[in-house]
């Protein structure tokens, strides 16, 4: 009986040592407040300017290291018959939508990783294989990945894709804002560079936001007064301007609060500095000790 109590104190001490606990607490703390970094880069998409040439799809495949088919094959407009989603080998896709203002000229929208300010995938990943860089990109480290695909589940924009057909070395595939290319080689993402219409503008997110609102003010007849990605799901590095409501070009409505804020709050409430579990441990130990009947020992004795 006394042994039990001694053991108990020892254990509490052991758990208290918890260098792990400190580490956990520190890491959890660091990720609590997420506002866009001032240096974060992003891309502004001027949807009305897109002509659906799909050059970006080609450039993306090339930059991602896949061997894309000849560039001429990307002129095939029949792929627009149905809305497409990113695939393991095409991290960005262009989709066509009817233009209510001008039947003859449909609108095109580009889908790829939004590089959220507070990414759900990063919060979801249990081995830190996904991380948000200070300069904007959400990048993936395959060497850590277990292939659990929680990031696919978590992404509100349904962007990451997975090599389901690979038995040994499957990967999560998504746009990484060309972060893998050395800045000297590629000073802007491949899709931004190739875009003939310059639909895409690469720059600091803060400046892009300014620019976006400026465009809305100067051309209120062209743009609807909404920058998609400014607040959606906590904000994203990719910002979109459109002439038609965003729900007509394949975008969904999201709360302004980033989804990880709630889950991380709950998670940290459960494990703040490892104290709640220790507290439970103590409480249960106390209960065990207090309810212990005077006669007999435990069954194991």
């Amino acid at each position: 009986m006394s042994l039990n109590r001694r053991e108990f104190i020892k254990a509490a001490g052991l758990a208290g040592i918890g260098g792990s606990a400190c580490l956990l607490g520190e890491r959890a703390q660091a990720s609590e407040a997420r506002s866009p970094s001032p240096d974060a880069m992003g891309v502004l998409v001027d949807i009305p300017k897109c002509i659906g040439c799909r050059r970006c799809e080609y450039a993306c495949q090339e930059a991602a290291g896949f061997d894309p088919p000849p560039i001429e094959t990307f002129e095939d407009k029949s792929v627009f018959e149905q809305a497409r989603r990113p695939q393991p080998r095409s991290h960005t896709v262009i989709n066509r939508y009817a233009n209510p203002q001008d039947q003859a000229n449909p609108v095109y929208n580009k889908f790829n990783c939004m590089h959220c300010v507070d990414p759900a995938c990063v919060s979801a990943c249990l081995v830190s294989a996904l991380s948000k860089q200070e300069d904007g990109p959400v990048v993936y480290d395959v060497s850590r990945c277990m292939g659990c695909r929680y990031c696919l589940v978590a992404c509100p924009f349904e962007i990451p894709t997975y090599d389901y057909d690979m038995p040994l070395k499957p990967q999560v595939r998504k746009c990484n804002l060309c972060a893998h290319l050395v800045p000297e080689v590629q000073d802007v993402p491949a899709c931004v560079k190739i875009c003939p219409q310059e639909v895409l503008t690469y720059g600091k997110r803060s400046e892009l936001l300014e620019l976006a609102h400026e465009k809305i003010v100067t051309a209120p007849d062209v743009y609807i007064d909404h920058v998609y990605g400014e607040h959606e799901a906590g904000g994203a590095s990719w910002l979109y301007l459109s002439s038609v409501p965003f729900d007509q070009v394949g975008f969904k409505h999201f709360d302004h609060k980033a989804p990880p804020r709630l889950t991380e709050k709950i998670q940290h409430a459960e494990f703040k500095y490892f104290l709640p579990p220790l507290m439970w441990f103590g409480l249960l130990g106390a209960a065990m000790w207090l309810t212990k009947p005077e006669s007999g020992g435990t069954s194991h004795e």
Binding site: V188, C195, E198, T201, Y202, G203, E207, L211, E214
Partner: peptide, 16 residues
């Protein structure tokens, strides 16, 4: 094609 910032963002490059 330069990394764009400030005023450069507002003026498309020649290709654009």
């Amino acid at each position: 094609f330069l990394k764009s910032a400030g005023e450069e963002m507002r003026v498309p490059n020649l290709k654009g």
